[in-house]
Design a protein around this nucleic acid. Sequence first.
DNA 1: CCCCAGTCCTGCGGGC
DNA 2: TGCCCGCAGGACTGGG
Length: 286
Amino acid sequence: MPELPEVETMRRGVMPIVGATIVVAERAPCPKRPISITPRIDRLSKRLAGKKIAAVERLGKRVVIRTDDDQRLLFEPRMTGLVLIEAPPTVEHLRFRLRLKGRKVKELLFWDRRGLGCIYLLSAKEYDDKVNDGSIGPDAIAISAEEFRSRLCKSRREIKVALLDQSAVAGVGNLYASELLHLASIDPRLRCDRVTGPQWGRMYQAMRDILLAAIESEGSTLSDGTYRNALNDPGSYQNHHQVYDRAGESCPRCRDSKIVRIVQAQRSTFFCKRCQRKRDLPRMSK
DNA sequence: CCCCAGTCCTGCGGGC
DNA sequence: TGCCCGCAGGACTGGG
């Protein structure tokens, strides 16, 4: 389930395509039900043919390829998508190919087992509009502490649910939301409008620490093994998970309370009831 | 406007 | 052993 660290690892993995010239874009042969590509593939290919790849960027959980004429080709991996330059896990789930020339790398691939992912090409103006109209919030790594707080603090939703809202902050998904709230010692059920100033500070710092550490580890590869880096190796951050998918185990911090699983907005949340409280415990006076 | 439940999809693991 | 059902959670949509 690619979240910010996994998508950042994909971005870094396909960086060698920068400077290459696009020859043609095509659907890979015969998936049962084709993934969503906008505009349709022949028109998308026509708009990209002959354009040079100027940069590979990332916005939240999307890989963004910028061409020399400022178009943006966006890849949304969703649950099981991978952006690759070689060796897809299987042939039958290969969905899309960008044929390239002028550099060592000859193709960019999109592979997606479940086919929930999608691809779209936007003009410079369409891209700017999308970023500015609020449908995609600021990236979780780039956002300031003040903006992080101000974009969330008025909501009455539970903090864990709000962290998943990509229009507020882009990049945090289900796994890292549980992890960062554990690191920040905050109850995932706490309403945003009841989070205190110190809690906002800790949450912001924990979000950065967790996401940056996970990028260092090239993301988390879960038991289904789908997510891989560009060299087809698994990430290693799953070995650092404190709470995610660890219900019933004792909390690694307090070594006492057991990690519990609850459901919020139809998604699993994992946390420690002892370490993560709605209210901070009063500080001991000397 | 804000928020939530339902939808898409495939592979897998648990239960019988 | 084999089959079936439910679950996993990205982003989006429709409705309260």
